[in-house]
């Protein structure tokens, strides 16, 4: 049976090291399979977070050969054959141990975002009416599994650590799902500009590149939100001709 070599980052917040493991692999295996095999056979204290093994829970985010990916969705056959596979934790977030990071910052950010605020019900029974085509637009954003790979790859967080000023691509997707919802009447543009720091995004599309759900984060969420911020703050003609205001 063929084998593969893995260089796995071990250690906690105090420091880390790369340890090398060689394990048997079979056709169809994904990186998470190999990691769990290493954990079972060679390193029982290896910390790894996982849950569904099906790309639905977003738990097993890590950096494979330097790129943020889900371990459960990365087939070994898609990696360069015959070369050691480098496994590291997400580098944008505080390291807990080995491949596990503390992503709780994301949950705190989510609480800061203005909640869904529907218009008054359309019918007397307290229900609303929506056209499918209007919902389709935000449906893409609902695919997000909160793996936070986009947050990890975003250089504003990863390299410049602007955790206080910038909410990151995941939460621009979340804001877009609310802001563009056909029932929502809340206006989040001021928060986008100031507290959320959308101006820090310089559209490198790394978030889109790593999204395992193929959400077009930059083109369909961030840039449309930037344009809505432009409407309110940077377009004097738009403000002059208020009747063109498109919101709701």
């Amino acid at each position: 049976m063929p084998s593969a070599t893995f260089q796995v980052q071990r250690g906690g917040a105090g420091g880390g090291r790369l340890e090398t493991y060689t394990t048997e692999v079979a056709e169809g295996m994904v990186v998470l399979d190999a990691v769990l095999q290493i954990q079972a056979e060679q390193a029982p204290d290896l910390a790894v977070r996982w849950n569904c093994k099906a790309g639905r829970c977003g738990s097993c985010s890590a950096e494979i050969n330097g790129m943020p990916k889900l371990m459960c969705m990365t087939r070994l056959s898609d990696l360069p054959p015959g070369k050691p596979i480098l496994l590291q934790p997400m580098k944008a977030f505080p390291l807990i141990k080995d491949l596990v990071t503390d992503v709780s910052w994301n949950f705190r950010v989510k609480k800061m975002i203005k909640k869904f605020k529907p218009r008054p019900p359309d019918a007397a029974d307290g229900t609303w009416r929506m056209a499918q085509e209007d919902v389709d637009r935000v449906q893409e954003f609902r695919k997000c599994i909160e793996c936070f790979l986009c947050q990890d790859v975003c250089h504003v967080l990863r390299e410049h650590h602007l955790f206080e000023e910038f909410i990151g691509p995941r939460f621009f997707v979340h804001v877009a799902s609310l802001e563009m919802h056909p029932l929502d009447v809340e206006d989040r543009r001021e928060e986008l500009k100031k507290a959320d720091g959308i101006g820090y995004c310089n559209i490198t599309k790394c978030c889109t590149q790593v999204c395992p759900e193929d959400i077009h984060i930059t083109d369909n969420a961030i840039i449309p939100l930037k344009e809505r911020v432009v409407d309110k703050f940077y377009d004097p003609l738009k403000r002059l001709f208020g009747r063109w205001r498109g919101k709701k």
């Binding site: 790129m67 943020p68 000023e165 720091g197 820090y200 310089n202 490198t204």
Partner: peptide, 24 residues
């Protein structure tokens, strides 16, 4: 921004500057 200003040079590649203001 990537090719001329290395901001970043590519995804997950370190940048030459530690200060960043983006389009803010």
């Amino acid at each position: 921004y990537k090719a001329f200003w290395a901001d970043p040079p590519s995804c997950t590649v370190s940048e030459p500057r530690k200060t960043y203001r983006g389009e803010h």
